[in-house]
Amino acid sequence: MSEELIAEASVSIDAPAAAVWRALTDPELIREYLRGATVETDWSPGSRIVWRGEWEGRPYRDHGTVVEVLENERLVLTHFSPLSGKPDVAENHHELTYSIEPVGDLTRLTLEQDNNATEAEARHSSENWQAMLEQLRKVAEREQ
């Protein structure tokens, strides 16, 4: 896999950075935009994070590690999904980097996912993340 093939998605949100941060880290809000997934973590660097839910009729339990937490600015997690069909080894994990940046009266949220094997995989991931960020935008704007 290539760490140079980065999937990226971004959205402008009409809410302050604190509302965007809350949408990223509040399990009840995450459930709203992440297709009903439950998230378990304490958001401390080095701690485990688990996402549980159902995707296309199949239950899943994704997992990773919280890498970096800069409240209202940046959140970095690793992520692995058994639904990928790949072995659960480090080279099949992705790093997800959420960056929060004020842009005028809006807040820009950008998500980057590394370690995509092909351009097509990176494009597919970007499309999925873009759809998720659009839903997160609605939640953050409502919650501000």
Rank of each mutant, 00 (worst) to 15 (best):
residue 2 S to F: 14
residue 2 S to Y: 13
residue 8 E to Q: 14
residue 9 A to Q: 01
residue 10 S to H: 03
residue 11 V to P: 04
residue 11 V to C: 03
residue 11 V to R: 05
residue 15 A to E: 01
residue 17 A to Q: 12
residue 17 A to F: 05
residue 21 W to Q: 00
residue 26 D to Q: 03
residue 26 D to N: 10
residue 26 D to T: 05
residue 27 P to M: 11
residue 29 L to D: 10
residue 31 R to A: 15
residue 32 E to P: 02
residue 33 Y to C: 03
residue 34 L to Y: 13
residue 35 R to D: 14
residue 39 V to L: 14
residue 40 E to M: 13
residue 45 P to H: 00
residue 46 G to A: 06
residue 47 S to H: 13
residue 48 R to C: 14
residue 48 R to D: 15
residue 50 V to T: 15
residue 50 V to R: 15
residue 51 W to T: 07
residue 51 W to M: 12
residue 53 G to Q: 10
residue 60 Y to F: 15
residue 61 R to F: 10
residue 61 R to H: 11
residue 65 T to E: 14
residue 67 V to N: 00
residue 67 V to H: 04
residue 67 V to Y: 04
residue 77 L to Y: 04
residue 78 T to F: 03
residue 79 H to G: 02
residue 79 H to I: 01
residue 80 F to R: 05
residue 80 F to G: 04
residue 84 S to D: 14
residue 85 G to Y: 08
residue 88 D to S: 10
residue 93 H to Y: 13
residue 96 L to Y: 06
residue 98 Y to T: 00
residue 99 S to D: 13
residue 100 I to H: 03
residue 100 I to S: 04
residue 104 G to K: 06
residue 106 L to D: 12
residue 108 R to D: 02
residue 109 L to K: 00
residue 110 T to R: 13
residue 110 T to N: 05
residue 110 T to P: 02
residue 112 E to S: 11
residue 114 D to T: 11
residue 114 D to E: 03
residue 114 D to G: 09
residue 115 N to A: 08
residue 121 E to I: 12
residue 123 R to Q: 14
residue 124 H to V: 12
residue 125 S to V: 13
residue 126 S to R: 00
residue 127 E to I: 10
residue 127 E to F: 10
residue 128 N to L: 12
residue 128 N to G: 14
residue 130 Q to K: 04
residue 131 A to S: 13
residue 132 M to T: 07
residue 135 Q to N: 13
residue 137 R to Y: 01
residue 138 K to R: 15
residue 138 K to W: 11
residue 138 K to E: 15
residue 139 V to G: 05
residue 140 A to Y: 02
residue 140 A to Q: 04
residue 142 R to E: 12
residue 143 E to C: 06
residue 143 E to N: 11
residue 143 E to I: 07
residue 144 Q to K: 13
